[in-house]
């Protein structure tokens, strides 16, 4: 983190502040005639968190490009230097530096405010903030794994939970990140990705899962949970001694209502396959549209076909062709070769 993150982000906004101070001074001169000046109470503990929240909302303002929001958030509120952020997102350092400069300039010149948004837009803006934090986590979750990004995302999630204790989705995201992070060691074995159902659950980080449970409890105690609370609830239903598939299938059905998307439908189909058998899952899966370019759709389809003893080689080939990394490709090729045996 810059020694003084606010200053790092705000120096550019100084001119605006000077204008405001000038206006305030005029106002003060006028009001002093009416009301005797009084020292404002200063509470340091309150002042610091508020400033961080203001920074978060400025960094994740929708007027900035998403990649700029991510970079700014990591730089201003995370613990990463420009070079580290550049390496994490596989761009040259000057490119990342330029991205940060451009984003800071827009904050200054377009008048992006440093404050908690008005209630009327708070829900939307908070969603943007949570999305940035989740994207940071996912960029680190890999494969390839970049621990520093996962750690930053969890730290940001904890910070937001502290600063916005009444927002269920904030706790929901915090819980989700903790659950996912707790599985990091079980997720990859011998350099290959391990499906959740095949993971050695003894490798899950128990303390982190317990922290996830605590965060989820706080979320569930609040009204109006959304996508992150549901996703965290799903993660929680994958317990150390097994997964509650009927419950998970039900939660995915609710998630599909809150956030309709073919990817959610895909997960729902997989959960239904586990709860009620591959036939029911495949039935749902074949109805999904728009995922033909998504390797997980084809790998899930291949898996269900394989379990039903139907021809699956074509689906595996399609999944292998689309797999985003060597790790995932290796996993699918192993499954395909098992098929041929």
């Amino acid at each position: 983190m810059p020694a003084n993150p606010a200053a790092w982000l705000v120096t550019v906004a100084r001119n605006r502040a000077i204008d405001r101070m000038r206006r305030d001074a005029t106002l003060r001169r006028k009001t002093e005639l009416l009301v005797p000046a009084e020292a404002e109470p200063v509470d340091e503990d309150d002042a610091i968190p508020d400033e961080r929240l203001n920074l978060v909302f400025a960094c994740c303002h929708p007027a900035l490009a998403l990649e700029a929001q991510i970079a700014l958030t990591l730089r201003a509120l995370g613990g990463l230097e420009t070079g580290e952020i550049a390496r994490a997102f596989l761009v040259p350092e000057p490119t990342m530096a330029q991205r940060l400069v451009r984003a800071k300039r827009k904050i200054r010149d377009a008048g992006i405010p440093f404050r908690i948004p008005a209630d009327t837009i708070l829900t939307d803006r908070l969603r943007a903030v949570l999305r940035v934090v989740y994207l940071i986590f996912n960029a680190g979750y890999g494969p390839p794994v970049r621990r520093e990004l996962c750690n930053e995302a969890i730290r940001l999630g904890a910070m937001l939970a502290l600063l916005m204790p009444d927002e269920s989705e904030v706790h929901g995201l915090h819980a989700l990140l903790l659950y996912q992070d707790a599985r990091r060691d079980a997720r990859v074995a011998d350099g290959s990705l391990v499906l959740l159902e095949d993971q050695d659950r003894d490798l899950w980080d128990e303390a982190e899962i317990a922290a996830g449970h605590r965060a989820l409890e706080r979320a569930l105690a609040l009204p109006s949970g959304g996508t992150y609370v549901l996703q965290a609830s799903i993660a929680a239903a994958h317990g150390a001694d097994g997964s509650d598939w009927p419950r998970i299938a039900g939660l995915y059905a609710r998630l599909a209502e809150v956030e309709p998307s073919p990817v959610v439908e895909l997960n729902r189909a997989v959960a239904v396959a586990m709860a009620r058998g591959p036939e029911a899952g495949l039935d749902l899966l074949e109805r999904i549209e728009g995922l033909d370019g998504f390797y997980l759709f084809h790998s899930a389809r291949a898996d269900l076909l394989r379990r039903l003893d139907r021809p699956a080689a074509g689906a595996y080939a399609r999944a292998i062709a689309l797999a985003p990394s060597e790790l995932e490709r290796a996993f699918l090729e192993r499954r395909l070769s098992e098929l041929r045996r």
Binding site: G111, I112, P113, P117
Partner: peptide
């Protein structure tokens, strides 16, 4: 005061529902 108020006013312009409002400082 800031871009947020400008965006709020822009969204209320009747034509925002049909075309788009470019907000320029």
């Amino acid at each position: 005061d800031s871009l947020d108020e400008a965006l709020e006013w822009a969204a209320k312009i009747p034509s925002a529902r049909y075309g788009g409002i470019e907000v320029r400082p």
